[in-house]
Design a protein around this nucleic acid. Sequence first.
DNA 1: CAAAAAAGCTTGACTGTACAGGTTCAGTAC
DNA 2: GTACTGAACCTGTACAGTCAAGCTTTTTTG
Lengths: 235, 235
Amino acid sequence: MQSNDLKRQEVARVIRTDIQSGTLKLGSRLPGENSLAKRFSVSRGTIRAALEELAQEQLISTQGGVGSFVSFDGHNLDTATGWASALASSGVQMETDILRLECIVDPDLAAQVGTESMSFLAVDRVRHVVDGRAVSLERSRVPATGSIVDAPKAGLVGGSLSATMRQAGLVASRGEQWVAVAPLAATEALILQREVGEMFIHSTRLSFDPEGRFVEKVVSWLDPERFRLHVKFGA
Amino acid sequence: MQSNDLKRQEVARVIRTDIQSGTLKLGSRLPGENSLAKRFSVSRGTIRAALEELAQEQLISTQGGVGSFVSFDGHNLDTATGWASALASSGVQMETDILRLECIVDPDLAAQVGTESMSFLAVDRVRHVVDGRAVSLERSRVPATGSIVDAPKAGLVGGSLSATMRQAGLVASRGEQWVAVAPLAATEALILQREVGEMFIHSTRLSFDPEGRFVEKVVSWLDPERFRLHVKFGA
DNA sequence: CAAAAAAGCTTGACTGTACAGGTTCAGTAC
DNA sequence: GTACTGAACCTGTACAGTCAAGCTTTTTTG
């Protein structure tokens, strides 16, 4: 069977369309897995695979013993338009494109960083040089508290995420960072317009405030030709 | 069923340990899924779930119709403790060759780190796995004070530079590190027996003691397939 | 000897079933 | 009204089997 016409992908495609068209509204519960299995005439395992796909896209989130819920309607999730406008307006040195700026619900992240609220501000940005070559992809997740929740409507303060965070009282004092050199996956390669498998710097950074509260998680892919990492450690 | 004692996680844990202990070597092929299912007395689906977990950790990669292969042995490079001890405590068979162990005079370095004395202990080391493939080149420079000057004659304390430094009262409390991905130059490529231009992790680390005195400078070239960086920052 | 065919592996996708354990809610007892 | 009980849901995990498709090695054929 081809990678194009997998049943799980077909199921995911239909549900994704239902979400984006508004048939399935934000926050509403999806039919149960058994019900979906009957409706699509596939096994429950295939339904679960499709739901997992949608969960990875953060369109839905699943709660054990309860059901799956639409966690985002995906209207502003179109990276294609963001990329197109970026190419059109490219003219000077280095530019930053905001691919995504919205509030999401992410139970997994909440569990990982230990926050009660599952709401986060998601900011995905791509940097590229004048010739159009993308050099970095950064995905930030910030707790959706205080004035942070206004960011999707009002935009970033001065176009800066750190300024927006500072205004909302989110200040990192310590954290951890993991850095590796890894081949680009298909998704990142598509966004960065690079070859799949090209070696990029892969970094994950978790930041916390002095009270140990989660401040920011940044997963980034960086062109090794353009980026250097610099860390200071110790007191 | 708890999230702690899932069969898939137990299987993944065992395989992960085999990889990190060196029982399963980098690049080697894992037994087939059916074979693993028999060995662990679980279904093939559970094996596939475990392998998927390991694949997400980028410890293995799976090739359709062929098998799964160890793509990384998961040793992290700890900048705080020094990666030498980090590697030593791991089970992978790794040998260290000391290329150089002598006192030198380096006015440039003295100016850079602000020491009166221009004498330093130079320690150049290469690490390689048992099959002979070199994976790292590390050039350390330590101020030639106290018992450090005896190192060229007496050797390193317990074969460890950090132990030698500790005995001489050289303890790092803070510092800076720069990390880049860069092509190997001719000199390094020759030493590491790699191709000139092969992309390696290039790291420079400067360490100082609590009084701000210079403790160590380490310039290292690391195989990106084998090393990852992990940094904790802040208080 | 070399090229083609076949056999025997492997992973990938899917099915249908089973049971454990959590959530919800109606019904019942107090 | 409140608290408990239990049925009816739900998802999470695991199992055993099927079929398709790809890779490798062996065998057969020319």
